[in-house]
Every structure is written in structure tokens, then in C-alpha cells.
């Protein structure tokens, strides 16, 4: 099975071509601001070098979130259109699970993306070929995340924690206070690798391309304010869009 996978969830752009479990090629662009300009040419480059066309791909995979809202939408729109037009399978993989897969040794992996003001899009996974989720993907204030780690460690044997992602070192004091051996991810582990997304994609359930949407894990501020002000419940997003 040929899998083409993409991550535009952070400022790091990653595209990979996998054949079953094997990563044939992965290309990365660091600190990239214009995913829109670079994503498609990078995909085309990989296909050309391997003498393939999009039609030869069996399954598309993408970092579904959390991450930069605009970034996520570029990657997801792209693969959802590929899959929809070419009638291929498509899967969305948790950005945080993909990060956790970069850690090979046995550990509790806390993956987090800096969401400013001591907030993180974060989760806890047990490392492994398919990292097992133990603290759900969410938007956490650092103190809430630390508490979730404490609660998990109180009930499970945790020999070591690896903190992977961005902006976690800032919390070193609070992390130290957990009193559990820990380390931070390497530069390679701290970025999202499309090759790992491709490997996770094998066991993931394909979805209808039309229904493939970012997992933002956060409502917009405007909606939160509206809800507070009016007390009205949130309706499914589709209720707000009408074909005319």
C-alpha cells in the first residue's frame, strides 16, 4: 500500500511517501511560513522522483490536529480534495500521536504544542509503534496538564516521562516538581514527521473525504463570547451554512 502523508500543523512542513510500514522518502521544510506555496510543489517533487502520480497512491494521510488552524486547513483541504477526486482512501492522524511516535524507548510521552499564555494543545501517550493515548488530546492550561500527569502517575507505574513538542521547557520548574525522571525531546523528535503519520495511517480507519475536518480542539473566541453573552447553545457548524 502506497501512502502519501502530509503535516502542515505547525510551521514545520513535512511530506512523506510510505510503502506499507517503510518510509520511502520524507521531505521537511523547517520554519516555513507559506505552506500554501510549498506544499503542492513538495508533493509533486516526491511523486516525480519516485516516478509516481497521485493516482498511484492508495491512501492519503494528514495531521488532523491540533495545530495552527490555518496550517491544518491547508493540508487537510489538499488531501481531502485528492481523495475525493481520485476516489482514494483518506485518514486523519492526531498531530499529538504522531509526535509521540517519535519516542522509541518505553516512557510516558507528553506531547504539547505551545498555544501561548501557558496554554498547550497537549496529550499523554504511552510510547510504542502505535502510541496509546492515556491523557486525551486537548487544550490545557499548564497547571491542568500537570495535574492530569500527576493523576495518571498516581495510578500507573511511570518510570520516565519524555516531553515532546514546543514550548514545554518553559515549564521546567513545574515539570521538575512532578518528581518523576524526565527528559525533553530532541530537535528531531520535537517536529512532526509525515513518515510517522504514514505509518500510523495503516491501522487508521479511512473516512469520507467530505467529513475530513480539522480537530481544532478549541472554539473560536467569537463563539465563546457569543455563547457567554446570549446563553444560547452551540449548534452543529453545518446548521449555520446554507446553500442558496
Amino acid at each position: 500500500m502506497k501512502i502519501l502523508s502530509v503535516s502542515t500543523a505547525t510551521n514545520h512542513l513535512s511530506v512523506a511517501l510510505n510503502e506499507d510500514q517503510q518510509v520511502i522518502v520524507e521531505k521537511n521544510e523547517r520554519d516555513e511560513r507559506n505552506h500554501s506555496e510549498h506544499l503542492d510543489p513538495l508533493i509533486e517533487e516526491i511523486l516525480k522522483e519516485n516516478k509516481l502520480t497521485l493516482n498511484d497512491i492508495d491512501r492519503f494521510a494528514v495531521a488532523i490536529g491540533p495545530g495552527s488552524y490555518t496550517g491544518l486547513r491547508i493540508g487537510i483541504t489538499t488531501v481531502k480534495m485528492f481523495a475525493s477526486i481520485l476516489n482514494k482512501e483518506v485518514v486523519g492522524i492526531s498531530t499529538l500521536q504522531a509526535l509521540a511516535k517519535g519516542v522509541k524507548e518505553p516512557a510516558l510521552v507528553i506531547t504539547g504544542l505551545d498555544a501561548r499564555n501557558d496554554n498547550y494543545f497537549a496529550a499523554g501517550y504511552i510510547s510504542g509503534d502505535i502510541p496509546k493515548n492515556v491523557i486525551p488530546d486537548g487544550h490545557y492550561k499548564i497547571d491542568v496538564l500537570i495535574k492530569a500527569i500527576q493523576e495518571y502517575a498516581a495510578q500507573n507505574k511511570v518510570d520516565k516521562i519524555v516531553f515532546v513538542g514546543s514550548g514545554l521547557e518553559k515549564q521546567d520548574e513545574k515539570i521538575k516538581a512532578l518528581n518523576i525522571p524526565y527528559e525533553y525531546g530532541t530537535d528531531e523528535q520535537n517536529v512532526i514527521h509525515a513518515g510517522l503519520i504514514g505509518q500510523l495511517a495503516i491501522d487508521a480507519q479511512p473516512v469520507d473525504p467530505d467529513k475530513l475536518l480539522p480537530r481544532y480542539l478549541r472554539r473560536t473566541q467569537a463563539e465563546v463570547d457569543w455563547h457567554k453573552k446570549t446563553g444560547k447553545p452551540f449548534e452543529p457548524d453545518s446548521h449555520y451554512v446554507e446553500e442558496v
Binding site: E223, Y240, V241
Partner: peptide, 27 residues
């Protein structure tokens, strides 16, 4: 596919909300 009903909640177009609606229907 118009989003007017959504943005009327806020009295004007909220860009992030607009983007979220676009991706829901584009394919």
C-alpha cells in the same frame, strides 16, 4: 453556500469562523 446565519451571531464576519465553514463544504 452562505455563512450569513453564522456571522449574524457576531454582527459581522469573523475570519476564523469563516475559514472553518469554508473547509466544511468545499469538496
Amino acid at each position: 453556500a452562505t455563512q450569513i446565519k453564522s456571522h449574524q451571531r457576531f454582527g459581522g464576519v469573523v475570519p476564523e469562523v469563516a475559514s472553518r465553514h469554508h473547509i466544511e463544504v468545499v469538496s
